[in-house]
Simulated assay, not measured.
Amino acid sequence: MTQKIATDFYDLMVSKKMYSRKSNLKFYLNNLFENVQLAEKDVLDVGGGRGLLSFYAAIKGAKRAICLEPEVDGSRNGMINGYNEIRSELPESLPVNLLPLTLQEYLKQTEAASFDIVIMHASINHLDEEACIHLLDDDASYHRYLAVFKNVYRVMKPNGTLIVTDASRNNFFNDLGIKNIFVPSIEWHKHQQPKTWISLLKAAGFKNPTTHWLTPNRLGYPGKLLMDNYFMSYMTRSGFKFTMNK
């Protein structure tokens, strides 16, 4: 894609108030897709909302990007309308399609080895919220998630990359029983630690986990150097990213 389309994309995301500044957005996307090649790849964006990551993948040369946005529990109202607004302002040639399906629904109709990259951006806990809450104390919940992850493994191509972001259940403010001043709306009991997800994904066949702790975008790379560690994350937002491979 041309440089102009990329510039238009960043300007559009800021105009839609998805990010306050282009520099913040560029930092976040570079950080999220660090060491991940998007060109000529088939990408599945799970719970993709208005399609930010799907459109970015297409702009970076992805062969196709499927954005799943069912607007079920855990999603925000108006995501599909928001996607359509963005779609109308970007080139029709961008290979992005939105499907109003849950991951589980989509997996039932998807052939094996279909995707190089699967993104679960703040959506892994919403795949089955009740099972997520009881993941560590209920065998049925554990196996419900394991079945989903095995199916994700099935639809990924050899050496494919899974990217997961979320908030860890462990947080200083939550452990004190008070509202987190940085992210006051998070329901911490509906989340799990990254090591919990990684262990479960390993059981489904994934390997080579690499974990990073997310830092405020406005701080850029100096903030990443200072805060990409468990302690600083625990004391603030507890956001994490990890990647694994098939």
Rank of each mutant, 00 (worst) to 15 (best):
P222S: 06
L176I: 04
F242Y: 11
A122L: 14
L44G: 00
N31L: 09
P70M: 06
Q193S: 13
K26L: 00
A39T: 14
E89R: 09
D166C: 07
A122G: 13
V72H: 12
I86E: 01
D8Q: 13
Q192E: 10
N170G: 11
K16R: 13
T110C: 05
A122P: 07
I186Q: 14
F206V: 04
V152W: 05
F242Q: 03
K4T: 11
N229W: 01
L176D: 10
V118Y: 01
N35G: 03
L162S: 07
E69R: 11
G177S: 06
L44Y: 01
R144N: 12
G47R: 05
I86N: 00
A140S: 13
M13Q: 08
V183F: 09
I133V: 12
D137M: 07
S93K: 12
N81D: 13
S88E: 08
E129S: 12
V14T: 07
D166N: 15
P216S: 00
A112P: 02
D228A: 01
H126M: 08
N24D: 15
A147V: 07
N84W: 15
R64F: 13
F242P: 01
S114N: 06
K179M: 13
S185H: 15
T102S: 11
F206G: 00
G220R: 02
E129F: 09
L146N: 00
E34G: 00
L135G: 08
F206I: 01
R50L: 09
V118Q: 03
H191T: 06
P184D: 05
N170V: 09
P209I: 01
F149S: 02
E69S: 08
H191Y: 10
P209T: 04
N31K: 10
D175F: 07
T211G: 03
N125E: 09
L162P: 05
S88C: 01
G49S: 10
F240Y: 15
Q104P: 04
P100R: 12
F172M: 12
Y28C: 04
F231M: 08
E85L: 14
I119E: 04
L38K: 09
A147T: 12
K179T: 15
Y106F: 13
G205Y: 07
N170Y: 11
K26Q: 05
M18W: 11
G61Y: 04
W188H: 09
L225W: 15
W197Q: 05
R50P: 04
K157E: 07
